[in-house]
Design a protein around this nucleic acid. Structure first.
Lengths: 218, 218
DNA sequence: TAGATTGTTAATCGATTAACAATC
DNA sequence: TAGATTGTTAATCGATTAACAATC
């Protein structure tokens, strides 16, 4: 039944299942088979059943899956019902956008602090949280013990800041900086969001499709 | 030598190679072996050589790779030297942050238009580009032929807007909306950036590490 | 020439898909 | 009961790693 170590490929599909199930739930769908869900999501029924069975048997033979139960189950597996403390470092354009745009509470987090070293930003209100001076970060961490840090800071600042946060017992990084964290801290969860890499990949793929189109013409 | 169809796994690693090579270049390193680069990047030398050889033999036996040449070569492969037209839809917090934060020109793009349906935003200057009314989007596309569209719009608006843009001949989407584009348009390049999914994954992994820690204690 | 390191083929590993017996 | 659909094992596919001859 429930597997010991579930691969990251499976984990990364869970939030998408969760989103599609939410939609089904909102549309009033009570049950769904792996076949119907696979058609909706553009993957195989086999994969869905394999993925879900990493965590237990949530379905019923001859019936399928109960949408509400499965939705809630996946939410629990992901830990979205938790309320871990997150701090945001860097209140520039991207940092402020993330603070204002993200629904942290429905993803297991609560934004408890925003920090920046720019005096022009310190004191500013961003979505109900006041920007604090980076100088106060260390003492804040020592008394408040945030779980994860969101890094929206320049590459140069990232390494030293990350080290300090690890010292303070941080458990995870949501890294938007250009600094590559993955390597250095194997026991801490890191999600790198390299927007530049994503845009570069899109650039390649648009070019590739263009080449295909030209080739087909000839 | 150069492979016909290169897998997406390989493509997605190219921007990261590009970044690391830039760093080496800036630090004055002239040549590097796959072994040294693999150590720096946390992957195997084999993988690096396999990846690069999808596009041709850029190295030299007994010497390694010339940093500058390889950096430029990968840039060309990705098409970062191009200057394709990008438009941004949705000038909310996230949209504005991306317009201001991203260096489009070093990733093969140029931001030629920003659109929003909110009258309060229309006319606003965002990084040197004026926000236009969404009502003018279709005619803009028909005369300017943008290559890619960046979607920073609500889920509800995404489907219809995407269809219209496809009609107008758009080649790619950089999709930050919660709408799942991948399925519908197989001949158009789509990069989905689901920040919510990324945060949910981080949530899972932080919990997982915590469980491991507790298990170890007992 | 000897040493280093590539390009490339072969072996391994992991992830996805197919098949089907179990069962609601 | 018959039909549907799961959970799970086995087969396939693709991606990563290892090995080594080619060669600078």
């Amino acid at each position: 039944m429930a597997k010991e170590n579930v691969s990251l490929s499976v984990i990364r599909r869970l939030p998408r299942y969760h989103r599609f199930l939410k939609e089904l739930l909102d549309s009033g769908t009570v049950r769904i088979s792996s076949g119907d869900l696979s058609a909706k999501m553009g993957l195989t029924a086999s994969q869905i059943r394999q993925d879900l069975n990493c965590f237990g048997g949530f379905g019923q033979q001859g019936y399928g899956y109960n949408v509400k139960d499965l939705y809630e189950e996946i939410g629990r597996i992901l830990g979205l019902d938790k309320r871990r403390k997150a701090i945001l470092l860097g209140a520039g354009n991207l940092g402020r956008a993330i603070a204002l745009h993200m629904d942290f509470s429905s993803r297991g987090f609560e934004l408890v602090g925003i920090f920046d070293s720019n005096p022009a930003l310190v004191g500013m209100d961003v979505g109900g949280v006041q920007v604090s001076d980076s100088a106060d970060l260390e003492s804040f961490c020592k008394s408040n013990h945030p779980d994860v840090a969101i890094l929206c800071i320049p590459k140069e600042a990232a390494k030293a800041l990350a080290e300090m946060l690890v010292e303070c017992g941080i458990r995870g990084f949501w890294n938007f900086s250009h600094y590559d964290l993955t390597l250095d801290y194997p026991n801490i969860a890191v999600e790198n969001v390299h927007l530049g890499d994503s845009l570069s990949t899109l650039c390649f793929r648009v070019n590739e499709l263009e080449h295909d189109r030209i080739r087909k013409k000839n």
